[in-house]
């Protein structure tokens, strides 16, 4: 591991009421690397991403981006840091009152004050990078299929060529073929942009495809981490059970 990770998380805690979701997460990601976090539903994967994005305030711990502590920054500085980020939300989170191109160009027109004409050109360019034709530019999100909405979300995340990309369950709810298309697009964008990426998934094919490295979260902590190709020989019974998708093993959902 290098001395200057792009993202450095240590001892991160977050509770909701009596529910202790994150219980001391430690995680570093080097620049240009793609890390996939796997884990069961409700284990706090989204909470982890939202903490890094500054959408949730952790109770304890530290998150550094390029060596800068980002927890507790004032809103203006937070917005500045956010301009390094691109995020694809679990449900797409497209603005349903805006057209497709206005969604993709949102940061350009609203935060960067770019003229609408130029922003539309860049939006259509980003749409092309995720195989979305120009013909969709003036449609509304509700008029597109789930897979196309994911691609719009992806285009919105990459339009400004951010240094850091986050993907929250990019393939959940998609058929296997569409999921594969999304996986390829994500891999392509990460490689092409040279971006640092953290993706969350519980879909193993997706994890293998997207990740250089895989980490597993369980009971609020990272319990294993290693290169993606080692995931089948992790020597960790929790990871083995998750990868095989077995109901029997150390992770007991029936008891919870």
């Amino acid at each position: 591991m290098s001395k200057n990770p792009k993202i450095s998380i240590s001892n991160l805690h977050k509770s909701f009421g009596s529910k202790h979701v994150l219980q001391g997460v430690n995680l570093n990601v080097d620049a240009g690397k793609s890390l996939v976090v796997i884990g069961g539903s409700g284990t706090g994967k989204s909470v982890l991403l939202k903490s890094i994005l500054g959408l949730l305030r952790p109770d304890q711990g530290s998150i550094e981006i390029d060596g800068t502590q980002i927890i507790g920054l004032p809103p203006r500085k937070q917005e500045k840091i956010a301009s390094k980020f691109g995020m694809l939300f679990q449900g797409g989170a497209l603005f349903d009152s805006l057209s497709i191109w206005e969604n993709v160009a949102f940061r350009l027109t609203h935060a960067d004050n770019m003229p609408r004409k130029r922003a539309k050109e860049l939006a259509i360019e980003a749409m092309a990078r995720v195989n979305l034709s120009k013909a969709n530019a003036d449609l509304r999100p509700a008029e597109l299929s789930g897979g196309m909405q994911k691609r719009v979300g992806l285009a919105r995340a990459i339009v400004t060529r951010p240094q850091i990309l986050f993907f929250d369950e990019p393939t959940t709810g998609l058929d296997p073929i569409t999921a594969d298309v999304i996986n390829r697009l994500i891999r392509e964008q990460v490689t092409e942009l040279g971006a640092t990426a953290i993706s969350i998934t519980h879909d193993m094919p997706s994890a293998r495809h997207i990740g250089d490295e895989i980490a597993m979260i369980f009971e609020g902590k990272i319990i294993w981490r290693g290169p993606a190709q080692d995931i089948d020989n992790s020597q960790n019974e929790y990871v083995d059970q998750f990868v095989k998708g077995s109901a029997t093993g150390p992770i007991n959902l029936m008891a919870g």
């Binding site: 939202k50 994005l53 500054g54 959408l55 809103p75 917005e79 500045k80 956010a82 301009s83 980020f85 995020m87 939300f89 679990q90 449900g91 989170a93 497209l94 603005f95 349903d96 949102f106 940061r107 609203h110 935060a111 919105r156």
Partner: peptide
């Protein structure tokens, strides 16, 4: 917008 994470999305797009 809140439950479909659009408010979160706004903030990640540097818009308050």
């Amino acid at each position: 917008m809140k439950v479909t994470e659009q408010i979160d999305a706004l903030r990640t797009l540097s818009t308050n």
